[in-house]
């Protein structure tokens, strides 16, 4: 069994009367990429800031490398690297200066890898940070983190300002870290990103972790949206098990769209094939769908968790 890098038990955080974190419990194991997902304002960034010792938890415990995140923060940070969700940089320093500063603060050196990353992310390091866009500021933080040799990496919605090409480069770099056996906590609300990289995910809503597990364990909870046109009539599909939100397209004959539970998708496909498919479009489940489902089936989910 792999060692546990991050261990959170019933973590709570109150801001005055507002309970931002009610009950956060999850682990990140060594060599694992853990996806931390949830809607805006659910408490992802607050959790991460407690883990970094920026905020002090008001209940429960959290340890990284077996050390308390508040008391031993400096010792922990020697082996940790972090990219915040919103990167703000000193406007009158250049990107190159800031990258070097971030490296030096953790006794790391500007290496050939740093230069390679600057090239890969297409960053002009001589520009002053005030001229950088949000994406470019994120690149500065990402370059510094990817060229830092750490044991545990925390990314808080790191791709929110990146274009798809840069997102791809980000994912490659995370996968490279994974290959080296590094542990990673990745907060995101882009499910495809999480799906591609994460071994396990934890879902947070309103300050509580409502589900943790591997993607396969989760997948049965997700639905794929299918739009299909056939030669034969499909109206009777509405009654099949596992199909939801069945809609008939008014303008085109024999065109319907519906959401299907992942566990029923095989059966549905088998049933569709004899109807002579003309065109078929499937939209992978989005995080939103997952949440909507949680929202509508809270009871079902908690039953499943047992």
């Amino acid at each position: 069994m792999a060692n546990t890098v991050l261990e959170i038990r019933h973590l709570q955080k109150k801001f005055g009367k507002f309970q931002a974190l009610q009950d956060i419990t999850f682990d990140v194991k060594e060599g694992e990429v853990f996806g931390f997902i949830g809607p805006n304002g659910a408490g992802k960034s607050t959790t991460i800031r407690v883990l970094l010792g920026i905020l002090r938890g008001t209940g429960g415990q959290a340890t990284i490398f077996g050390q308390d995140v508040w008391r031993d923060s400096v010792k922990i940070h020697a082996r940790l690297a972090y990219v915040p969700g919103d990167v703000y940089l000193w406007p009158n320093l250049s990107g190159g200066e800031i990258i070097d500063l971030f490296l030096k603060l953790n006794q790391q050196k500007h290496t050939a890898k740093t230069d390679a990353l600057i090239k890969q992310f297409e960053l002009d390091p001589t520009k002053k940070a005030r001229t950088y866009s949000k994406g470019n500021r994120q690149k500065v933080a990402l370059i510094a983190v990817f060229s830092t040799n750490a044991d545990f990496y925390i990314f808080d919605e790191p791709t929110s300002g990146l274009d798809p090409l840069m997102e791809e480069i980000f994912q490659q770099n995370v996968l490279a870290l994974k290959k080296q056996g590094k542990s990673i906590l990745l907060s995101s609300h882009i499910l495809s990103e999480v799906e591609r990289m994460c071994d396990r995910i934890g879902i947070i809503r309103e300050g509580k972790i409502i589900e943790t597990g591997t993607l396969d364990e989760m997948r049965h909870l997700t639905r794929t949206v299918i739009t299909v046109k056939t030669k034969e009539d499909l109206a009777d599909f509405a009654q099949l098990p596992g199909i939801h939100n069945f809609k008939i397209d008014e303008r085109t004959t024999n065109k319907v769209s519906f959401a299907v539970d992942s566990e029923s998708i095989g059966a549905i496909m088998t049933a569709l094939a004899p109807r002579q498919i003309v065109s078929l479009q499937s939209t992978p489940p989005t995080l939103e769908d997952l949440f909507l489902r949680y929202y509508n089936h809270d009871q079902e989910v908690s039953d499943h968790a047992k």
């Binding site: 320093l93 190159g96 200066e97 800031i98 070097d100 390091p125 520009k127 002053k128």
Partner: peptide, 8 residues
């Protein structure tokens, strides 16, 4: 805005 240093 003038360009800054490439390295710190």
């Amino acid at each position: 805005n003038r360009p800054g240093r490439q390295r710190a």
